[in-house]
Amino acid sequence: MSVRSALAKARFYVREFSGEAAYDRYVAHARSHDPDAEVLTRRAFERARTDAREADPREGFRCC
């Protein structure tokens, strides 16, 4: 395995683990279903994702 290949795999796992790839999946999904639909900005997407996570009762109480 080359260094470039190892770095690409490491980048993939870091993006998946951190949740950064979620926005890319959202955009691809939105575009595949309706190419003319407006797509949320990354900031709006992250805000909606955070709000949904905090509203989920299974997540438990969060103080911060």
Rank of each mutant, 00 (worst) to 15 (best):
residue 18 S to K: 01
residue 25 R to N: 14
residue 21 A to M: 06
residue 36 D to M: 08
residue 45 F to H: 03
residue 13 Y to G: 02
residue 38 E to G: 10
residue 14 V to C: 15
residue 24 D to T: 03
residue 12 F to Y: 14
residue 20 E to F: 10
residue 22 A to G: 04
residue 30 A to K: 11
residue 5 S to L: 06
residue 30 A to T: 05
residue 18 S to F: 06
residue 57 P to K: 02
residue 62 R to V: 15
residue 35 P to F: 12
residue 56 D to Y: 03
residue 61 F to D: 13
residue 37 A to G: 14
residue 53 R to V: 10
residue 6 A to Q: 05
residue 51 D to H: 14
residue 55 A to W: 05
residue 20 E to M: 08
residue 7 L to V: 14
residue 62 R to M: 09
residue 26 Y to E: 02
residue 23 Y to K: 02
residue 57 P to M: 04
residue 47 R to H: 11
residue 15 R to L: 09
residue 36 D to S: 13
residue 39 V to L: 11
residue 60 G to M: 03
residue 21 A to D: 14
residue 59 E to N: 13
residue 55 A to D: 10
residue 54 E to I: 15
residue 45 F to M: 04
residue 9 K to G: 09
residue 34 D to P: 03
residue 36 D to R: 15
residue 51 D to Q: 14
residue 14 V to D: 10
residue 55 A to N: 10
residue 11 R to G: 04
residue 32 S to N: 01
residue 43 R to H: 06
residue 2 S to I: 01
residue 64 C to K: 11
residue 10 A to G: 08
residue 41 T to K: 04
residue 23 Y to H: 02
residue 36 D to P: 00
residue 63 C to H: 06
residue 2 S to Y: 00
residue 18 S to G: 13
residue 59 E to W: 01
residue 26 Y to K: 02
residue 59 E to R: 13
residue 36 D to W: 11
residue 20 E to N: 05
residue 2 S to R: 04
residue 38 E to Q: 14
residue 1 M to S: 11
residue 14 V to M: 12
residue 64 C to S: 13
residue 21 A to K: 06
residue 35 P to Q: 12
residue 56 D to G: 00
residue 16 E to R: 07
residue 64 C to G: 09
residue 33 H to I: 08
residue 51 D to A: 14
residue 51 D to E: 11
residue 16 E to N: 05
residue 44 A to Y: 03
residue 5 S to Y: 08
residue 2 S to A: 05
residue 56 D to W: 02
residue 44 A to C: 06
residue 56 D to T: 00
residue 59 E to F: 02
residue 13 Y to H: 11
residue 23 Y to W: 04
residue 21 A to I: 05
residue 2 S to H: 02
residue 45 F to L: 07
residue 11 R to K: 12
residue 38 E to K: 10
residue 20 E to K: 07
residue 23 Y to G: 01
residue 32 S to I: 00
residue 31 R to M: 01
residue 32 S to G: 02
residue 57 P to I: 06
residue 59 E to D: 00
residue 22 A to W: 06
residue 28 A to K: 11
residue 8 A to R: 04
residue 45 F to D: 06
residue 35 P to A: 15
residue 38 E to T: 13
residue 20 E to V: 11
residue 31 R to K: 02
residue 55 A to I: 04
residue 44 A to E: 08
residue 22 A to V: 07
residue 41 T to A: 06
residue 48 A to R: 12
residue 52 A to E: 10
residue 17 F to T: 09
residue 58 R to N: 00
residue 27 V to L: 11
residue 53 R to D: 03
residue 6 A to I: 13
residue 64 C to V: 12
residue 53 R to S: 07
residue 59 E to S: 05
residue 61 F to V: 15
